[in-house]
């Protein structure tokens, strides 16, 4: 089975997705403050890695990177509600790019699987979510 990464068009599609997704995040006051002091180019590179991973594209994802990469944000109050916002915008972005509801749900499940890493909790600690 080909990955959603390939179905959407590979690298160029993910580049386009990063632009859409990042713009949604920056424009959302629930999460925008977390991006105040970041370099936009390196942030976009990280988002591209994340999107590639959740779309099943080539990646060397490690939960440890996700943990250390967000620890300073957890200290600033990053919590489940913000991860929900990420998943919401991720879904909207993929829908704009032509993904089906089933595909969006599959990506959301993958994104949810790193929730504990992002929030620096022991794996499996997160409350059940639909």
């Amino acid at each position: 089975m080909t990955s959603l990464y390939e179905q959407l068009g590979g690298e160029p599609a993910v580049s386009a997705a990063v632009d859409i997704f990042y713009r949604k995040m920056l424009g959302d006051e629930r999460v925008a403050a977390f991006f105040d002091d970041v370099d936009m180019d390196s942030q976009a590179a990280k988002q591209k890695g994340f999107l590639t991973m959740v779309l099943g594209g080539p990646n060397h994802y490690t939960g440890q990177d996700m943990r250390t990469g967000h620890r300073h944000l957890v200290a600033r109050g990053l919590n489940d509600s913000h991860v929900d916002v990420v998943i919401e915008h991720l879904g909207a972005t993929l829908t704009e790019l032509g993904a089906t509801a089933e595909q969006v749900a599959a990506v959301a499940a993958l994104a949810n699987s790193v929730r504990d890493d992002v929030l620096d909790r022991p794996q499996g600690a997160s409350p059940a979510r639909c």
Binding site: G49, N59, H60
Partner: peptide, 8 residues
């Protein structure tokens, strides 16, 4: 770092 063409 990432060896996947993302991190630059």
């Amino acid at each position: 770092s990432c060896r996947s063409g993302h991190c630059r």
